[in-house]
C-alpha cells in the first residue's frame, strides 16, 4: 500500500467518482464540484502565465507596445454586458473578434475543409478500396442533400449513403468505447498497483 499522501488523495477521489456507478451520492457530488473548481482555477493560472504576462504585461511594461491599449480598451467594453443600460457596447469587441476570426478562418476553411478534401477524394488509382471510398463520399453527400427529394436514383444513392454513415458511426462508437475502456483500465491499474500494491 502506498505511503504517498498524493496517491491516497487521487485514489479516494477516483473512488468518489466511481461511486456514481451505484447511484448519485454526496461523495460523487463533492468530487464533481471539486473537479469543476480545480479545473477552473487551473485555467485561470494558465491564462495568467501564458496570456496575461507574456501578451499584455511584458509587451506593455518592457517592450512599450502601446498599440495593445487599443484592444484592451475595446475588450474592456465586454464589461458593459454587466450594465443593462450600456450592454449594447459589448457588441463592439464581439464584432471585432467575430469578424477577424472569420476573416482568418474562411480561406482556411475553404482550402482545408473543402478543396483538399475533394482533391483527396478523387480517384488517383483504380483499387477497389479507392472506388469504395469515392462512392462513399458522393453517397454521403447526397444523403445530406435535402434540396432534391430522395426518390429514384437520388433515393438509391442516398440509401447507400445511410449505409456508409452507419458504418462510420459504428466505427466511431467502437473506437470511443475502447478509448473509454483503456481509461478505466488505467484507473484500476492505478488503484490496484500504485495505491494498494495488489498487482505488481
Amino acid at each position: 500500500m502506498s505511503h504517498d499522501i498524493w496517491v491516497w488523495v487521487a485514489a479516494l477521489l477516483t473512488l468518489c467518482i466511481l461511486s456514481f456507478l451505484y447511484k448519485d451520492n454526496p461523495f460523487y457530488k463533492f468530487a464533481e464540484y471539486l473537479l469543476i473548481g480545480v479545473a477552473l482555477g487551473f485555467g485561470i493560472a494558465i491564462v495568467w502565465y501564458n496570456i496575461i504576462i507574456p501578451k499584455i504585461w511584458i509587451p506593455l511594461r518592457y517592450q512599450h507596445q502601446y498599440h495593445l491599449f487599443i484592444p484592451a480598451c475595446l475588450g474592456s467594453l465586454y464589461i458593459c454586458r454587466l450594465f443593462p443600460k450600456y450592454a449594447w457596447l459589448s457588441r463592439w469587441p464581439i464584432a471585432f473578434s467575430l469578424g477577424a476570426s472569420i476573416g482568418m478562418s474562411l480561406p482556411l476553411t475553404l482550402q482545408a475543409g473543402i478543396f483538399k478534401q475533394v482533391q483527396s477524394t478523387m480517384l488517383s488509382g483504380f483499387s477497389i478500396s479507392a472506388i469504395i471510398a469515392f462512392i462513399g463520399v458522393v453517397a454521403t453527400l447526397i444523403y445530406f442533400y435535402f434540396s432534391a427529394e430522395h426518390k429514384g436514383f437520388v433515393g438509391g444513392v442516398a440509401k447507400t449513403g445511410i449505409w456508409y454513415v452507419m458504418i462510420s458511426f459504428g466505427a466511431i462508437f467502437g473506437y470511443t468505447v475502447m478509448a473509454r475502456m483503456s481509461l478505466i483500465i488505467g484507473r484500476f491499474e492505478f488503484l490496484l498497483h500504485n495505491w494498494l500494491g495488489v498487482i505488481k
Binding site: G113, Y164, S168
Partner: peptide, 11 residues
C-alpha cells in the same frame, strides 16, 4: 468506408 463517410460529413 469510415473515412469516406467522415469526409462526406466533413465536406
Amino acid at each position: 468506408p469510415n473515412m469516406a463517410a467522415q469526409r462526406g460529413i466533413g465536406l
